[in-house]
Design a protein around this nucleic acid. Structure first.
Lengths: 251, 251
DNA sequence: CAGTTCACGATTGTTAACAATTTATGTCAA
DNA sequence: TTGACATAAATTGTTAACAATCGTGAACTG
């Protein structure tokens, strides 16, 4: 009976991307900064908030039903993690990573995730692995139902849970940031629709971990990241929907 | 002729730790949040701001000569990186990591730094390595002059520059946070005065990188981190100077 | 018609006053 | 003296008004 999950949802109304939440019922108690940050994180991960989308304070205030202070604090936190770009006197815009930033994010993941998975395969915890397989089940279900945004989100969240399985809160936080920024990058540099799904690669990785085959798990993950990266065209960044293009329509 | 460097300095006045800046001349322009964050970062790295020290808004306001807004934003940023602990309605306190957090920070460094150094040794950049050797020269100079706080800071900063040498801004930011939190941990769990210096281990690591010996560089760094960690007694956390102990004196 | 200027509206940045909470102080009774 | 309780002070959280800045578009000029 989980139905009224209040999500930050983006829809196109008169040519402008809108951001809403608490549309049906505002029974949720005072969203704190943390809540706002989480919602925007989620929206970015699901690629419903496109890069360069403006997040005006007023809009967010009425969206979350909070004062300006909360919103500004949330925006500051988001900007400190590279999720949004806070331009002085101009407002907050969903980050629009350039080639260099994209490389940095991927390189960071290449540096961190392989040893993480390797270590996970060496000393695996039963319950945490169970969480991972449960998660993959969710991914499969979403894929079967062709729920695009849910697939994208779950696909990224797998890597976060991979970090969480390691039981290190510091690493977990870093991975969450990296994965979210990756979503932005994929949205910007991704070739058409191939951007979404890594198919059963997650399953293979988890199997290797389960088998305790550290070396294989590591290699599979590297291949997986490379696979994601190869789906990008680093030299052809899509025009961010800042200027007329998105409003005038693709004609 | 670098003399009036305005530093955040802590001194004991009538039994209370004070925090001052801009004491001699306030010629520096309006410190932004970034500036305040940097100063506090530095003070923590140099172990002049002890864990659990209260950072009241009023104090920081007059210290930096800014309004409350700036201070609060800075505190929010610091808390989001685990440098301070922001307690609701009670104020901001320099973070006081427990055993679990300490483990997480060290594990994270163990995960990230070895592959970082390994990679650095494989494709080393001349100019960036030059920066590192220059830095080690500074460390030696500080050691020769027995400048304790400077040594501590430079010692940690070496690892940050190690990350910067890799040319990845994401990794650099992560390392800065990890190194700073390590300072807190060493201050809390460090056995007496052994906490400070890793002697010439930095030099050895840099030599291995210079020689392009990735494997050796990696091993040396692991040994270095282990060495730091072995100087800690994880089960005997020093009483944070919250209660009477620090005020009544060690009698 | 192109280009510039100016004024207005909209949005963000800042300040200051107010509200809420915690901490310290002082009083009184057991 | 100790403890509980009430009051006052100090500190943080919040709100609202004000100031500053930017974007837009109309009016004006060449």
């Amino acid at each position: 009976m989980i139905m009224k999950r209040a999500v930050l949802k983006g829809s196109d109304v008169n040519g402008e991307t809108q951001v809403k939440a608490y549309s049906e019922n505002e029974n949720s108690a005072d969203p704190t900064e943390k809540t706002i940050v989480d919602r925007i994180y989620r929206a970015v991960m699901e690629q419903r908030l496109a890069p360069n989308t403006k997040l005006s304070e007023a809009r967010l205030c009425e969206t979350f039903g909070v004062g300006r202070m909360r919103v500004r604090r949330a925006l500051l936190l988001l900007s400190s993690q590279g999720i949004i770009d806070l331009q002085s006197n101009r407002g907050a815009y969903v980050a629009c990573p350039d080639k260099s930033e994209a490389r940095d994010v991927f390189d960071a993941r290449m540096l961190i995730e392989p040893p993480l998975v390797k270590q996970l395969a060496q000393k695996s915890d039963g319950t945490s692995l169970r969480i991972l397989s449960d998660h993959i089940a969710l991914e499969d279900a979403a894929r079967a139902r062709h729920e695009r945004t849910e697939m994208i989100r779950l696909s990224g969240e797998f890597h976060v849970k991979l970090a969480q399985a390691g039981g290190n809160s510091v690493i977990s936080r870093m991975m969450r940031e990296l994965v979210t920024r990756t979503s932005l990058i994929v949205g910007l540099f991704g070739s058409s629709d191939t951007a979404s799904c890594p198919d059963d690669e997650h399953t293979k990785i988890l199997n290797a971990i389960h088998a305790g085959d550290a070396r294989r798990a590591e290699k599979l993950l590297i291949a997986h990241l490379n696979h994601i990266q190869s789906g990008l065209d680093m030299d052809a960044r899509k025009q961010p929907p800042d200027d007329l293009a998105s409003i005038l329509g693709p004609d």
